[in-house]
Amino acid sequence: MKKIIFVFMGLLVFTGFSSLAQAEPDIYELTIKDHKFTPDEIRIPAGEKIKLVVHNQDATPEEFESDDFRREKIIPGNSSATIFVGPLKAGEYKFFGEFNLATANGVLIAE
């Protein structure tokens, strides 16, 4: 038990340090309108954690999802959501709006 607590404390301290060490992540913005993403392609630096702010301008909720960089978040109608992404290796990562798979598609490129 002691060991577990010890590891957990270590983890907390580590978490604290890593968030101190990192500068506030850069913000990238996306808009959903008529169940489409604008822009539908975002370029971010590889190896850096970023903040993705998604504005849903439709009246209906959308689920922002990516199997590639593994995020899922419901964004209610006419509201915005912040999603932490990365750090990611260089490459192309697809994302989509799960509630509108036919139209809501985009790609995030880490380079």
């Binding site: 209906t60 909720p61 689920e63 509630f99």
Partner: peptide, 14 residues
């Protein structure tokens, strides 16, 4: 389940 509810709501509302 919550996702299905929200999705269905969106489909109907739109």
């Amino acid at each position: 389940g919550a996702e299905i509810v929200l999705f269905t709501y969106g489909m109907l509302a739109s």
